[in-house]
């Protein structure tokens, strides 16, 4: 794939001013990253390394201190409907039904088209029969499916995901990964996916970007050139997974043991 980068991060840094008299805190330091159209990129790193903060800057919810973020050739000024963010959980509006939630971002479409789009994505995320249900009647996994369908409905070019499966149980998480892979192959969106789960990143991504502990910077980038759906027992998969574990593990020996629990839940 030799297309121009759709997201290009140059020398990005973020520093929070310290509380009264304390030193300012470096959260992110000189991050460089390029993502091409249609690519599925996962960002992993120990908890507290600033992955979510990084994502918030790329999406325009937060402003960086130094460097620049170009998305589709222009500096990011704020949230944009062409790039939709999928939150960890509860981003689904509890006062709307499943179909009303999915239609939220396409309110300006003519209603006939709206219905068509909603039906299409309800089917794609496997929620047929639950169109009229309210989120409180759904399981956590189903709510996350609603959120993904809602993100896809306005046909964005990029989807940002911040640990979207973090609050789900193990089995549901596996199922959601498989489904997300299937949806991504069908929709061909660029996906930037933040997770602390290394296995998840190797199962999903074309490329895994490993961040260092704070101040977060790119420690390593690992290309995952394995066919999908991925065989989680294949030596190639295990090798790549262990490579990333190794990359993070080495840096963790310096840090506290507490952070290990974030990586080995």
């Amino acid at each position: 794939m030799v297309s121009a980068p759709v997201i290009s991060v140059r020398d990005l840094g973020l520093t929070f001013p310290g509380k009264k008299g304390a030193e300012p805190i470096d959260v992110l330091r000189s991050i460089n990253l390029e993502i091409t159209t249609g690519e599925f990129v996962c960002i992993v790193g120990p908890s507290g390394c600033g992955k979510t903060t990084f994502l918030n800057i790329v999406t325009g919810f937060l402003r960086q201190s130094t460097g620049e973020v170009l998305v589709q050739g222009a500096p990011v000024k704020g949230p944009d409907p062409r790039r939709i963010f999928v939150f960890q959980e509860n981003g689904v509006f509890p006062w709307l039904t499943v179909e009303q939630n999915i239609a939220f971002g396409i309110a300006r479409c003519p209603s006939k088209e709206q219905r068509e789009i909603v039906r299409r994505y309800v089917r794609m995320v496997g929620l047929t029969g639950f169109e009229k249900a309210y989120p409180r009647e759904l399981s956590g996994g189903m709510r996350q499916r609603v959120e993904i369908a809602r993100a896809l409905a306005p046909d964005p070019e990029i989807i940002y995901m911040d640990e979207p499966f973090g609050a789900l149980d193990f089995i549901t998480r596996l199922k959601m990964r498989a489904d997300l892979t299937r949806i991504w192959e069908k929709e061909k969106k660029t996906i930037l996916f933040v997770t602390h789960d290394i296995e998840e990143s190797v199962q999903l991504a074309d490329r895994v970007v490993v961040l260092s502990p704070r101040p977060g910077s790119v420690r390593k980038q690992v290309k995952i050139d394995l066919p999908r759906p991925r065989d989680l027992d294949s030596p190639e998969y295990l090798e790549l997974r262990d490579e990333i574990f190794h990359t993070i593990g080495m840096s963790l020996r310096v840090g506290a043991g507490e952070e290990m629990s974030a990586i080995f839940p």
Partner: peptide, 19 residues
């Protein structure tokens, strides 16, 4: 998260209040 999700979809300020 509700406000951010809505802003992400590009709602106007009036719609943000109403919806």
């Amino acid at each position: 998260v509700y406000v951010r999700a809505a802003q992400n979809f590009g709602v106007t300020r009036v719609d943000l209040f109403r919806r």
